[in-house]
């Protein structure tokens, strides 16, 4: 794929998903901020059952918004990953396809870790074990993503280490 095509793809993704994804993610962020910093502490001052209900309401709203934003966000990441690959990875000797794949996986990993951190306050309030279970799942998922990254980039890494 040529540079012009890559840019056209990113532009199309930005046009198609940019505004909608941004709207959903901004809403999710604002609801998270108000929920975690304002409403849930208010509810906890009333009692544990009010806290639980408020946590569930905010968690459901946050989950709906994030799940609706995921497909657009994934498309944006997929089309955007070409740029960091070109800027940082191709220069270090990776083939273009591999560089794009590595950059995509790294962006996925970052997104998953950030998503887990956003869910953490809700999960801890529901039950501390929930956050532990989720952390284990996230670690496993990130491990597989990292494995995929290493599979395509191990040659470049060893070359870089021996150089």
């Amino acid at each position: 794929m040529s540079t012009a095509e890559e840019i056209t793809n990113f532009k199309q993704a930005l046009r198609l998903y940019g505004a909608k994804t941004l709207h959903l993610l901004l809403s999710a962020m604002l609801i998270w901020l108000f929920g975690v910093l304002v409403f849930i502490p208010m509810a906890s001052s009333i009692g544990w059952n009010a806290e639980l209900v408020c946590t569930l309401i905010v968690l459901v709203a946050f989950t709906i918004l994030v799940s609706r934003a995921i497909s657009g966000f994934k498309n944006l990441i997929d089309t955007f990953s070409v740029f960091p690959a070109r800027k940082y990875l191709i220069k270090r000797g990776l083939a273009k396809e591999n560089a794009v794949a590595v950059s995509k996986q790294i962006l996925y990993m970052l997104s998953i870790v950030v998503l887990y951190l956003l869910y953490f306050p809700f999960l801890v309030r529901l039950h501390p074990a929930f956050s532990g279970i989720m952390l284990i799942l996230v670690v496993i998922f990130v491990f597989f993503l990292a494995l995929k990254t290493l599979r395509v980039s191990h040659r470049a890494i060893t070359t870089w280490l021996y150089s």
Binding site: H23, L26, S27, L30, G35, F39, I46, A50, C54
Partner: peptide, 21 residues
């Protein structure tokens, strides 16, 4: 207070969604 807070949380979700649009 608990019922009112729950109503406020639900209203706030919609208000913030509209605002971010």
């Amino acid at each position: 207070p608990a019922i009112l807070l729950i109503l406020i949380v639900i209203w706030a979700i919609f208000a913030l969604y509209r605002s971010t649009r």
